[in-house]
Structure formats: structure tokens, C-alpha cells
């Protein structure tokens, strides 16, 4: 039950959105997320969007590894 799923926002209306998670479409609540537009990616838990995903993991991991390098 407690699994996060990333999904692309297709349509938004009245705090609800149709999202596409790897081809599976579903209506979810997006009322907790501000400034959300079609094309954005969100993290979905139990039928509600709990976060906007701002980038892929590549930059993030690169920064983590830079931090470790700096520490040495």
C-alpha cells in the first residue's frame, strides 16, 4: 500500500488531475501541490500527489558524489 509512484500530469481540474504512470491513467487529488501544470511529474501515494518531482536523479547523484569527494 505504501508505495510511491511517479506519474506525469495530463489534465488538471478543480484540485484533481488525470496522471499517466507508465501508460496507466488514473485520477488523483493534486490539491496539496501548488503551481502544477500538465507535463509536470508528481509522486503519488494512495491517490494523492505528495510532491512535484523537479529533475531526474542524475544531477542529484552527481552532487552527492561531489560532496563525498570534497570531504576527503
Amino acid at each position: 500500500m505504501c508505495v510511491g509512484l511517479s506519474a506525469r500530469v495530463d489534465k488538471i481540474k478543480n484540485g484533481m488531475a488525470v496522471v499517466d504512470a507508465s501508460g496507466v491513467k488514473r485520477e488523483i487529488s493534486t490539491e496539496l501541490i501548488e503551481n502544477l501544470y500538465p507535463g509536470d511529474y508528481v509522486m503519488v501515494h494512495a491517490g494523492i500527489a505528495i510532491a512535484k518531482i523537479s529533475s531526474t536523479d542524475e544531477d542529484e547523484v552527481n552532487k552527492i558524489m561531489e560532496t563525498i569527494k570534497d570531504a576527503k
Partner: peptide, 22 residues
């Protein structure tokens, strides 16, 4: 380093303040 630490290594999804509306 034997010193307590915490880091946000998932900043593409997790923000400092969390989800205020939630």
C-alpha cells in the same frame, strides 16, 4: 567522521520545509 549528520540526498522530491499544505 564520528559526528552526527543529516543530509537531504533526495532534493528533487524532498524540500526543506516539506509539504506545508499537507
Amino acid at each position: 567522521k564520528n559526528k552526527p549528520f543529516v543530509a537531504n540526498l533526495y532534493p528533487r522530491v524532498v524540500t526543506e520545509e516539506g509539504l506545508i499544505k499537507a
